[in-house]
Design a protein around this nucleic acid. Sequence first.
RNA 1: GCAGAGUUAGUGAAGCGGUCAAACACAACAGACUGUAAAUCUGUCGGCUUUAGCCUUCGUAGGUUCGAAUCCUACACUCUGCA
Length: 357
Amino acid sequence: MFRTIKTFGEFGRIGEFDTRRGLVKTPTFMPDGTRGVVKSLLPSQVAKTGVQVVLANTYHLHLAPGENVIQELGGVHAFGGWKGPILTDSGGFQVFSLDKHTKITEEGVTFKDPATGDKHFISPEISMQIQLALGADMIVAFDHLIGLDESSQHKTLEAYERTHRWLVRCVTEFKRLTANMKPSERPLLFGVVQGGLDLELRRKSLDLVQASEVDGIAIGGLSVGEPQADMFRVLKALAPHYDNARPRFLLGVGAPADLRFAYEHGIDMADCVLPTRNARHATVWIDGDIKTHLTNARFTKDPLPIDPTCDCYACTNGFSRAFLKHQFKVGEPLAGSLASIHNLRYLSRICEQYRSI
RNA sequence: GCAGAGUUAGUGAAGCGGUCAAACACAACAGACUGUAAAUCUGUCGGCUUUAGCCUUCGUAGGUUCGAAUCCUACACUCUGCA
């Protein structure tokens, strides 16, 4: 149950909710640790940026090392060392990102591993089973996600309908798997809203998800190549219709401007690879949301920290832009780690600014 | 001193008569990245102008040829054998 502490603006809210692994204060940003950990960072470093929840991925952990291995070793928390809440994505995103390697039927999705050629079948039920076995504290229903370029718009309705049929199966399987758990031991299930850029469909999708027995509302299918204005239009249209008792999770959004818009339109939590991937690719955000390539020649002798206004470890411990540029140029992984710390802190600070309104 | 091999754009290295401003790699420069097939990918990379074009380049200087980075001669330098 989501507790609203305060509202701001027309749709924004500050609040908190409980997971079996502890309290989550919102708005919050959750970095993606696809294989169980945030790439290039120690859990302690992630925690110090203000991150409360880390994401992990059903698809990747199912392929290797397998949920059975992780379960035997004590679950994904023990496995990767993250003590706070963990949210697993369902594998639904891979239906989209591995599009060319998948075969979708009503029963589920067959993935052909691009690396090995091995086939893996994931259905709504199997996704629930994997996520429960991994030991996640929040899990996501297995949905059908499509791109939003012109060539795929005709699939919007199909994906929307399938997502809801699959949601029913997810809820049923989830209830079966958690039947013997106390409410305080049970992970939270998020249903996914789809509908592409069709506001009517989006609205219906939200109603359907909110009418089902899910703990949280996830907004999916955005930030998949559509113009920013389209994403904003959808978020704006959904904003007045959310159920106040449940947390709202925007899947896959992480650009500062997008997060701000989302939080101001009723979103409580979001995840994204952007801060950490960009960081490993030498790109950081600097005060004012200025996207900056640290490898640019102009930083060769720059003694300043990444962002003089930032309080992250990298910015307050003497690491100059010149040093980071050099480390990136010579391929030292420390540069990516320091930049990741900075970018995560940058997004956490945005969240903290909203939480302190 | 003799005999071989070599000298190509920032570096390494292809090319061995025309389709060569010259493959490829690295470096350099710029960019992309939004529920991670991503510590990855893309573009530029002789000069001037720029859809096209013009000019100057392949150790140096000559020569052969309609045409040379590619063939010949001389010279310079480098490496490997033999003295």
